[in-house]
Design a binder for these strands. Structure first.
Lengths: 215, 215, 215, 215
DNA sequence: GATGAATGAGGATTCATTCAT
DNA sequence: AATGAATGAATCCTCATTCAT
C-alpha cells in the first residue's frame, strides 16, 4: 500500500527492544523473513545494524520473539474461555474480542499466514502445544451447538478452519480488498462492516437450523 | 526451514524452460520470491545457475512467468462464463471446475497468497485488468440470486471475497490442515470431502432463504 | 621479514586454484588461519573476494587444501622408505631429502607448527593416520642403530621428536634466526651450513658410542 | 577448533587484572592473538567485555602485558648469571631452572613461538634489547667449553638455537607429543624424563670430546 | 570498577548476473 | 544451450572500542 517511504519508529515509543520488535513485526509481516534484512530493521529504529544484536541473538531469534509476542495474546484469548465454548453468547463475545484484537494488530494475521505458507517449524510447535488442545476442546464443546451437528462429521474440521479463513483472510488479503473495494480495508468505518459480516456469516454457517438439501 | 528433501525435476518432463518453471513454481510457492535462490532452482533442474539465464532474462522475469503460467487458466476459467453467472447450475459448475484446477495445481494458491501478502505490483495488474471486471460482472449477475440479495449491500463484497478465502484457504494453509487434521490434506480421499464442504458452505451462505435474525 | 608490500601472485603462475593455494599458503604461514581474511587472499591473486568460492567451498576448506598439498610430499617422503630406516645411508639420505624439500617450501614448517600450536583437528588426523605408523616403524627400525639404543627407553620418543624440532625449528623460527644471526636464514649460502649442522647434530645424538657419564 | 571446555578463572585467584592476564595468556597461547576475542577473555573471567578496558587500554596492550609478564622472569633468569656461563655447573643449573620455570608456565613457550612465527615487532624489541646481548655474552663464554669449540664456527649459532628448540619444542608441541606418546606430556611424571632427556642431549651436543668423524 | 548499549569496520559467505568458451 | 569463472552488492554476524550510567 502507500507510503513506502521508510517510516521510522519514533524514539520515544517504549524500550529499544520493543521498538525493534515493532519495526521487525511490520517488516516481517509485509515482506516475510527472507525479504527483510537486519540492516533495514535497524534503520527503521534508527539504530546501527550491530545494535540489534545487543537485544536479540540472531535474526531468527528476533523473528521468533515477534511471533511470540504477537501470538501470546491470541492463544490467551482462546485459552481463557476454555470451558465455555458451548454458550452462544460466549462464541459471539469471543468473535468480537478476536476481531478487536486483530484490528489492533493487523500485522499479526499476515505473520501467521506467512508462517503457515512456509510450513515453518515455529508453527508446528504453536499448533501442537496450543491450538490443537483448544481446537479439540472447542470442537467437542460445539457438539452442543445444533447448527454445528447438522454438518457431516467429516466436514466439521473444515468448517472450523473455514471460519478461521473467513476471519483472518480479511487481514491477510488486505491488499486485495483495497484494490477490489476501492477503499482502505483498515479504515475505522470498515470495522463495523467487517464484524457484521462475520457475525452474519458465522450465523449462517453455524447457528441455522438447516433442512435445505445441499442439492 | 525444514523438509529440504532435494526433489529433482526429472529430465524427461518437458522442455528445459518448462522444467525450470516447474521447479521455480514449487520453490516460490514454498518459500517465496526472496527465499529462493537462482542456484537452488537450477540445482533442482540439474542445471548450472548460469543456464537459467538462457531461458529467462532474470529471476524476476522467471517469477512472473511462473505466475503467468499459473494464473492464465484461472482467469480464463472465470472469463469464459462471463455472461452466465446468474445460473445456479453454472455457479455449481464453476466451483467444481475451479476446485478441480486447484487440486491439479496446488502450488498456485500459495503463490497467489504470497503475492497478495506482498501487495506485489504483479497482483495489482492482475486485479485491475482481469479480476475487477469479472468481479463486477459476477456481482451484478448475482443480484439475481435470491440468497445473495438477502445480504446487506455493504456485506456483499466481503461475502464474495469470503468465498474466495474458503476456497483458496484450503490450499494456502495446507500445512496447518495437515497438522490439525492429522492427515495429508492433499490426499485424493480428501478431495471429495473438500468439494462437499465447499458446496455446503456456499449453499448456506448464498442460496438460503434466510429469515433467521442475526441476533 | 622485509617487503611486506602486498606481493601479488603473478597471473601466469599456474591455474587459478593453484595461485589461490599459493597465496593462501604464504599468508596462513605468516599469520595463521584466524589472522588472514579471504579478502586478502583474493587480493593477492588479483581476484574478487567472491571468486575464491568458485574454487574452494569455504575458508576452512581452502586451509585444509593448503595443508593437504603441503603435507602430501612430506608424508610421501617418509612413507616411501618404510622398510629401510635402519640403514644409516638411508637415514642420511632421508635427512638430505627432507631438508631439500623444506628449503623449497619454507612456508610448510610454519603451517605445521601453527597447526601443532592450535592442536587443530587436522593435525589429529595427520598424526594418527600417517605419522604414528611411520614413527612406530621408524622407531623399531632404529633399534638396530647402536647410538640409539644407548638412550634409555623413556628418552627415545623425546629424542625423535627432538630431532624433528632441530630440523623444523630452523624454519619455524626463521624470524628469530634472522634477528640473531643478522642475516637472512633462507639465503642460499645458509643452506649448506644448515644441512651440515643437522648432520653433525644428529650424528652426535644418534650415532655415537657414548660412555660419557651424564654427570 | 575443539576442546572449548569453558574453563573459568576462579574469582578468588588474585586481582581482577591478574585474572584477566591469566585468562588471556591461556587463550592467546592456545589460539593466537587474532584467534581470540576480547569478549571471550572477559567471559572466562566472568566479566563484561567492556570491563576489560578498565584494566587494559586495548587488546593489543593486554597482549603485550601478557608477554611482558611471562617473559620477564625468563630474561631475568638469563641476565642473572651474565658473568658465569662458562661454568658447567652453572649451565646445568641454568638448564634446570629454565625447565623448572617452563613447567610452571607452559603457556609461555607457545606465546613465544607464536610471536616468532608472526615475526611480531614485540619479538624484535625483545631480541634486540635482551636476547642478543645475552646470546653474545653466552656465546663468548662458551668458547671456554671444550665440547663447544669442537663445532665449526658457522655451526655454533645454529647449535645454540638448536638447544633452544630442544628445550622449547617440548612445550610448543605439547599437542603433538600427547598424540604421539599417547599420554599427557605435561603430567608430573613426564617432568623428570624431560629434564633427563635434555641433560643427556645437551651433554652429547656440548660436552663431549668428539673425534668421531662426521662421516 | 562494572555494565548495557551503541557503533563503524570488517568478518565469511551468498546473491543475481555476466561473459567467454 | 550449457557452463566455469568472475564480480559488485548485499547477506548475517562479530569485532574492538566507547560511553553514559
Amino acid at each position: 500500500m502507500p507510503g513506502e517511504a521508510a517510516k521510522t519508529v519514533p524514539p520515544e515509543a517504549g524500550s529499544t527492544a520493543t521498538r525493534i520488535l515493532d519495526a521487525a513485526e511490520a517488516l516481517f509481516a509485509k515482506r516475510g523473513f527472507a525479504g527483510v534484512s537486519v540492516r533495514e530493521i535497524a534503520g527503521r529504529v534508527g539504530l546501527n545494524q550491530a545494535s540489534i544484536y545487543n537485544h536479540f541473538p540472531s535474526k531468527q531469534a528476533l523473528y521468533e520473539a515477534v511471533l511470540e509476542r504477537g501470538l501470546g495474546p491470541i492463544t490467551d484469548l482462546l485459552a481463557e474461555g476454555k470451558g465455555s465454548f458451548q454458550s452462544r453468547d460466549f462464541q459471539e463475545q469471543l468473535l468480537e474480542r478476536l476481531v478487536d484484537h486483530l484490528w489492533r494488530t493487523p500485522h499479526l494475521p499476515k505473520l501467521i499466514q506467512r508462517e503457515v505458507l512456509d510450513g515453518g517449524e515455529y508453527l508446528e510447535r504453536l499448533v501442537d502445544h496450543w491450538l490443537t488442545p483448544i481446537y479439540e476442546q472447542g470442537t467437542s464443546a460445539m457438539e452442543a451447538t445444533p447448527g454445528f451437528v447438522d454438518w457431516p462429521l467429516a466436514d466439521r474440521p473444515l468448517l472450523i478452519l473455514g471460519l478461521y479463513h473467513l476471519l483472518f483472510g480479511y487481514f491477510t488479503s488486505a491488499a486485495l480488498y483495497a484494490r477490489v473495494l476501492g477503499k482502505d480495508p483498515l479504515s475505522p468505518e470498515m470495522r463495523r462492516t467487517h464484524l457484521d459480516f462475520l457475525r452474519r456469516a458465522s450465523d449462517r454457517l453455524l447457528h441455522q437450523d438447516v433442512n435445505a438439501p445441499t442439492r
